[in-house]
Design a protein around this nucleic acid. Structure first.
Lengths: 265, 265
DNA sequence: CGAGGTGTTGAGATTTGTCAACCTACGTGG
DNA sequence: CCACGTAGGTTGACAAATCTCAACACCTCG
């Protein structure tokens, strides 16, 4: 069974649809979003998204994978551990965190995701989601059922390659976080985190030196394996050392090279 | 370009082959390994491997993905960061670690892999391997070029599903390690590690309570984000607390429930 | 405009790391 | 087959990093 949720006004409604065959019959015409037609071909996030590297002639087939779009308000979840929905999500706008909660109630934030990035890759396969994705600001996503992706990937090799590359990239990102958590000092972890955010904002055309953090100190701490007091103290220390200006969530990187030097610790 | 290595006697020879077209022409008949014909259908690791869940009628097609087999001696690498070989490996026998080395020379062991498990999933996609896989004992692997896997996956949906499930599973495994590194005490990390090893040995028909560690304390420490002295002290403490018997690499779990209680710390 | 969530700072405790000495097993070569 | 060298493993004393607990400040949102 495939569960698709959509947001209708204030309430999140879960609707149980027929399995894939129904979805495969969807005409999948460009979905109108507030009167503005959007397809992959006209999306400025195309290259960083699932359609990246897919030649123009296959773009329409890829665009048809987008079964619908969803708006998620800040604080709401896109999916949650145990959900039966079997979809991949492309972030059109907004910001998310994903996290895993273990039997003893400990939360590990496993990643932060922004526009053009994919969410829900870990749910591919039989077992459904084991983690949750929560919007840290009002967001829009393209909803792509696994079944449709797989059907299309069988017929469009460039999409298949891209999908595999994205999955492999997510595995590698995980390895990088392991290295961060396993080998780096608290100072180096926060520096790496800020440098990474900075780069990702810059790639999207935003300022890489001045940005607002979308997450709390608790989220940062969980992601970096540190307590919030430690995170807070490190922000203060970086500020004192002239590496950045911080005012709550507003961060301006003053000395990026200074931050990079900290990575070695 | 696709690089395939094979072991011939004592030396590892790198042979540059033509790209995928050559490989696709391989007859891929059952490869003889020391006089014993092996295919996926007759392999007792089939269900945990890439062919898991693939119905009998498709098994031959999946078996044909195995381009060759390789023997890796203890200490040798199966692949290394920067290698151009683009293959997935199924471990037929033996034991491996994978690790990532950063610019400052820090090594993070990202996983330990045993018979029936896949290696090299993170290399799918364009960028090649960024990490290395090193044999911790003499090992045998099935070599499956990505190009062949992808071609077959387009035609055999059950294989495609399985592949995606394996990739997603590897992403999730990474999230679990993040939780371990980010939230758990040293004690809990080692306990979790031993419990995990125990389960995996048991699944393979070996004793889950008594086994030989294939890796050094340094490998364990790197994987768990701890120094070797800490790992060593924890082994001694577990021994003193009657949780296990340890003699260097030989471990016998005496009180598995006691170990499980430690997970909460 | 007030309450609760979020963030900061300090003092002291705890965990883990560092450095150093030493022990043990293994495998290599004589 | 034995001896020896070396890699791997253990233990202790001490240092350092990070956490804990507690008090308080700020800011945002209803």
């Amino acid at each position: 069974m495939l569960t698709v949720r959509y947001v209708d006004g204030l309430s999140t409604i879960r609707t149980l649809l027929q399995p894939s065959i129904v979805i495969l019959r969807q005409p999948a015409a460009p979905v109108s979003t507030g009167g503005c037609e959007v397809t992959c071909a006209s999306c400025n996030l195309r290259e960083s998204c699932l359609s990246g590297g897919v030649p123009a002639e296959d773009l329409e087939r890829v665009a048809n994978i987008v079964y619908t779009r969803r708006r998620i308000r800040r604080g709401e979840d896109l999916f949650r551990a145990g959900d039966e929905s079997r979809c991949l999500y492309a972030i059109r706008s907004g910001f998310f965190k994903t996290s895993l909660i273990d039997d003893d109630g400990r939360e590990q934030v496993t990643g932060f995701f922004m526009a053009g990035e994919l969410l829900g890759m870990e749910g591919f396969g039989d077992s459904g989601y084991k983690d949750s994705a929560i919007a840290l600001e009002d967001s829009n996503v393209c909803v792509m059922p696994y079944s449709l992706i797989e059907e299309t990937a069988r017929e469009v090799p460039s999409l298949q390659r891209r999908l595999h590359a994205m999955l492999a990239g997510e595995i590698l990102r995980g390895h990088g976080v392991m290295l961060l958590l396993g080998q780096m000092s608290a100072e180096a972890r926060l520096a790496a985190f800020l440098i990474n955010l900075s780069k990702r904002f810059r790639c999207r055309g935003y300022s890489g030196s001045s940005f607002a953090l979308r997450m709390t100190r608790a989220d940062i701490g969980s992601y970096l394996g540190l307590k919030i007091e430690t995170v807070s103290r490190l922000f203060s220390a970086f500020h004192q050392d002239g590496l950045l200006d911080v005012q709550y969530r507003q961060v301006s990187i003053v000395d990026i090279q200074g931050l990079e030097r900290l990575l070695a610790d």
